[in-house]
Computed example of a mutant assay.
Amino acid sequence: MTTLNLRPSTPGARVLGMGSWQPSRIVTNDELAQRVDTNDQWIRDRVGIQSRRIADEGTLLVDMAAEAGSLALKDAGLEPTDIDTVLVATCTMPDLIPNAAAQTATRIGIPAPGAFDVNTACAGFCYGLGIASDLIRAGSAGRTLVIGAEKLSDWLDWDDRSTSIIFADGAGAVVLGPAPDEASVGIGPVAWGSAGDMKDAIRINHATHGIVQEGQTVFRWATTQIAPVALRAVELAGLTLADIDVFIPHQANLRIVEAVTKRLRKAGAREDLRVADDIVHSGNTSSASIPLALDHMRAEGRVRSGDVALLVGFGAGLSFAGQVVVIP
């Protein structure tokens, strides 16, 4: 019988560094009100957004991904040559092929890595984190760059009030590496799933090339179904909600964030739980929203080294995923 020589595995993965990038252009609610029937208070009351960042036409999704990835490498103290795998979570590439990951790696200067994209829309970063962590644990990957990047402005009907006020552009990234021992493992098992029967809740209108969203349907689903996913992720990590210092859900809608947080506190989360509210000034950046919020919270001093963070993404598909992460 032939025996295959398997690469040695590790106890798991940990985060080594992080970074994020956003366009410089800030679009306010008042600016959007000049095009669609809305106003600043109407938008704040419904989704909690005050402003968002929109890239210019010449900025590509892979440009944003490369900027965020480069910053994450610098934060980790690593060179591009130290990375062997690149994963980009995105749902807004202009074409199905070529993928974003290989192009992004080349822009950063990473030589010949394994490179692939993950498209589970707003759940993409958590899916990517789970995949990368397991690749490292199995010995199939070493230091891995995971990026969430979206240029949603390319996929909007700017005359559709229900979507043009919500979505925005940006990228966030983390570098993962093998944990030297079990005590150093910094990424818990992923809790994930999907609800394909609700595929029409968020979709593309092929006539307009724009995103269509059934807002109330998504709101009802997220406010009832996401808290159990978060609880499952905590259980898989062998922890309780009382162990969680920071909660970073996908920044879809501030009302959804607040509703899910309320359910978690009723289930045992601490009152001093720090909760991401990046949507206020970044908008909904789909798969980029969680790493963006994480990096922004760290810059603001709201996330510190050693904190235990609960990440949960959810979006089109419908897809959802979450895991517990220890902040480096």
Rank of each mutant, 00 (worst) to 15 (best):
Arg137Thr: 10
Ala141Gln: 07
Gly142Gln: 15
Thr144Tyr: 13
Ile147Trp: 09
Ile147Ser: 04
Gly148Arg: 09
Gly148Leu: 06
Glu150Trp: 12
Trp155Asp: 02
Trp155Ser: 03
Asp157Gly: 04
Asp157Arg: 13
Arg161Val: 04
Ser162His: 15
Thr163Lys: 05
Thr163Asn: 08
Thr163Trp: 01
Thr163Asp: 10
Thr163Pro: 13
Ser164Val: 14
Ile165Thr: 14
Ile166Trp: 07
Phe167Ser: 03
Asp169Thr: 04
Gly170Phe: 02
Ala171Pro: 00
Gly172Arg: 06
Gly172Gln: 07
Ala173His: 13
Val174Thr: 01
Gly177Leu: 05
Pro178Lys: 14
Ala179Tyr: 03
Ala183Ile: 00
Ser184Trp: 01
Ser184Val: 05
Val185Ala: 03
Gly186Ile: 01
Gly188Trp: 01
Pro189Gln: 14
Val190Leu: 15
Ala191Tyr: 09
Ala195Thr: 10
Gly196Val: 11
Gly196Leu: 02
Met198Thr: 06
Met198Asp: 07
Asp200Tyr: 07
Ala201Gln: 11
Thr208Glu: 08
Thr208Tyr: 10
His209Ala: 13
Val212Cys: 09
Val212Ile: 09
Val212Asn: 09
Gln213Tyr: 08
Glu214Thr: 12
Glu214Cys: 07
Gln216Cys: 00
Thr217Ser: 12
Ala222Phe: 12
Thr224Cys: 05
Thr224Leu: 05
Ile226Tyr: 00
